Amino acid sequence: MERRRVLTMCGALATGILAGCSGDGDGGAPTGTATETVEPTATPTAEPTAEPTATPTAEPTATAESGPGGPTHELDESFVVGTGSDRIGYRIIDFYRADRIGSSANYDTADGVFLIVFLELSNPQDTDTSFPQNAFLATNEEQIRYIDEGATPKIADDDRVDTQALGSATLLSGSSKTGAVVFDLDPDQSYWLELRPTGDAGDTHYVEIGTISEIQALESSMVG
């Protein structure tokens, strides 16, 4: 009887041990191969395409205005017209306009508007010379105007200015004179002062006058 009890206990103990072993096998980590999680491949960010740099369009270079057919000069610029023994020096000082020229008792009235040209005339020749009336002109595409021989002498008697008339002036060799000459011009027209050589050679020179109505007026003090 005692032996049967011992055998029964041994059988029960053996069953418990087997059951424990079986339990350990079931509770362990799964024997299947673990699948690696694939990290997503980062897509490279496209670099922004550089915008082409716009090339600035070059501004057109302003071309200096040229005269109708020869060298041009500014006010107060000295220059010589002609060659050799026909040379005459000029310096155009300023322009004024007026409706009348002369004294209050003896004046001329313009048909258009008088243009008064103040200038310095010089003689670089070895002999005496006179003011070149036929070579000192006011011109445009439609007109050629000579100095007004009636109004020019009266500029010396006009109390608005202190100057001499040069229309009939004679210059000794190496000398110069400052004075004025007068043109009678259309106020709505634009003109160039055209200075021609008195001989057969040399360039015609130009000084721009502009539109006569835009020239500064000689202040009036005459009584009609």
Rank of each mutant, 00 (worst) to 15 (best):
residue 1 M to G: 12
residue 2 E to C: 01
residue 8 T to V: 12
residue 11 G to M: 13
residue 12 A to Y: 10
residue 15 T to S: 14
residue 19 A to T: 14
residue 24 D to R: 13
residue 28 G to S: 13
residue 28 G to A: 05
residue 29 A to S: 15
residue 32 G to I: 09
residue 33 T to M: 05
residue 36 E to K: 08
residue 37 T to G: 09
residue 39 E to S: 13
residue 39 E to D: 08
residue 40 P to Q: 02
residue 43 T to G: 10
residue 44 P to M: 05
residue 44 P to L: 04
residue 57 T to E: 10
residue 58 A to R: 08
residue 58 A to G: 06
residue 60 P to T: 02
residue 64 A to P: 01
residue 65 E to F: 02
residue 67 G to N: 09
residue 67 G to M: 00
residue 68 P to I: 01
residue 70 G to L: 00
residue 72 T to Q: 04
residue 72 T to P: 00
residue 73 H to K: 03
residue 74 E to L: 01
residue 75 L to D: 00
residue 77 E to Y: 04
residue 82 G to K: 04
residue 82 G to F: 03
residue 83 T to Q: 06
residue 87 R to Y: 11
residue 88 I to T: 14
residue 88 I to V: 14
residue 89 G to L: 02
residue 91 R to G: 05
residue 92 I to G: 03
residue 99 D to K: 12
residue 100 R to I: 03
residue 103 S to C: 11
residue 104 S to N: 13
residue 107 Y to N: 13
residue 107 Y to P: 00
residue 115 L to R: 10
residue 116 I to E: 11
residue 116 I to L: 14
residue 117 V to A: 04
residue 118 F to C: 04
residue 124 P to E: 03
residue 124 P to K: 02
residue 124 P to D: 03
residue 127 T to R: 08
residue 127 T to S: 11
residue 127 T to G: 11
residue 130 S to G: 07
residue 131 F to T: 01
residue 134 N to Q: 10
residue 135 A to C: 09
residue 137 L to P: 07
residue 139 T to I: 05
residue 141 E to K: 05
residue 142 E to N: 13
residue 146 Y to S: 14
residue 147 I to H: 08
residue 148 D to K: 05
residue 151 A to K: 01
residue 151 A to E: 01
residue 155 I to C: 05
residue 156 A to R: 03
residue 157 D to W: 06
residue 158 D to Q: 08
residue 163 T to A: 07
residue 168 S to G: 12
residue 170 T to Y: 05
residue 170 T to Q: 12
residue 174 G to I: 06
residue 174 G to E: 12
residue 175 S to T: 15
residue 178 T to K: 09
residue 181 V to Q: 05
residue 186 D to W: 04
residue 188 D to G: 06
residue 188 D to Y: 11
residue 191 Y to V: 00
residue 195 L to Q: 13
residue 195 L to P: 11
residue 196 R to E: 15
residue 197 P to T: 10
residue 199 G to E: 03
residue 205 H to Y: 07
residue 210 G to M: 00
residue 210 G to S: 00
residue 211 T to H: 01
residue 212 I to Y: 00
residue 212 I to S: 01
residue 214 E to Q: 15
residue 216 Q to P: 02
residue 216 Q to N: 10
residue 218 L to K: 10
residue 219 E to H: 14
residue 220 S to I: 06
residue 220 S to Q: 13
